[in-house]
């Protein structure tokens, strides 16, 4: 494997059995992502975007082919090793935020650090730093129910970023947000991408997100139809 790449899929196939038939979600996908990319998987529903994110995030395993993340082959990982990979290197951002409702903003962001076994002082410092990135340092004691949609998603970003992972996977992160909040969120993520060199991979069909992407991978029926890189995110670049 080329070490300059964080993620590499090699002839990746994912088939979901559906009774007597089966659905091919990913069909011989070959992709590579390197450090600090700001990339998006774009395509209609059922094109395989979320399936690809799940496999990269070691939440699912391929039917055929291979996926290597941070030098580890996903298909060879046990549940525990998969959990360790996510714990140390991967952050997730969901469409529906999925904050833990009974915990405060601080505790929600702190949770991944508890799994890493950091000391209370380290956790305190990192959580406050992450909340400052998303400009929510003044809402540490709030509960998710007291936050707006935009604030909730910013907490989710802080939670994903707090352990400073190499990769953040975001599945339709702006689907439940209005335009203004979407732009705020995307700008925050872009800033983190620039400052921490975190690789962001989105699964989206939201034009607002697509405007920010520096790489757009179009999936259709589980195949890579287009893989475009933009020097200027609002413009269009050359095809790879």
């Amino acid at each position: 494997m080329d070490n300059s790449y964080l993620i590499k899929t090699d002839e990746l196939v994912k088939i979901f059995p559906m009774g007597e038939t089966s659905i091919i979600a990913l069909n011989h996908v070959n992709l590579m992502f390197k450090k600090a990319e700001f990339a998006g998987l774009v395509g209609p529903s059922g094109s395989g975007k979320t399936t690809l994110l799940n496999i990269i995030g070691s939440l699912d395993s391929p039917t055929e082919g291979s996926t290597t993340v941070m030098g580890q082959k996903i298909e060879d990982l046990s549940h525990k090793q998969g959990a360790e990979l996510r714990n140390q290197h991967i952050g997730f951002i969901f469409q529906t935020f999925n904050l833990l409702p009974v915990y405060t903003v601080f505790e929600n962001v702190e949770f991944p650090l508890l799994l890493l076994g950091l000391s209370p002082q380290e956790r305190q410092d990192k959580v406050m730093k992450a909340l400052e990135w998303v400009q929510l340092a003044d809402r540490v004691k709030s509960k998710p129910a007291q936050l707006s949609g935009g604030e909730s998603q910013r907490v989710a970003i802080a939670r994903a970023v707090v352990k400073e992972p190499k990769i953040i996977l975001a599945d339709e992160p702006t689907a439940n947000l209005d335009a203004e909040n979407s732009h705020n969120i995307l700008q925050t993520m872009e800033k983190i991408n620039n400052e921490l060199e975190t690789t962001f991979i989105f699964a989206t069909h939201d034009e607002k997100v697509i405007q920010y992407l520096r790489r757009k991978i179009t999936l259709i029926d589980g195949k890579v139809a287009k893989d475009e890189v933009y020097d200027n995110p609002t413009g269009r670049g050359e095809e790879q």
């Binding site: 549940h79 959990a83 360790e84 996510r86 999925n98 991944p112």
Partner: peptide, 16 residues
């Protein structure tokens, strides 16, 4: 379910 899914996504092992 939501909580369990999020915790797994964040890297908590099934055993833990």
């Amino acid at each position: 379910y939501g909580e369990i899914g999020v915790r797994l996504a964040m890297g908590e092992s099934k055993g833990h």
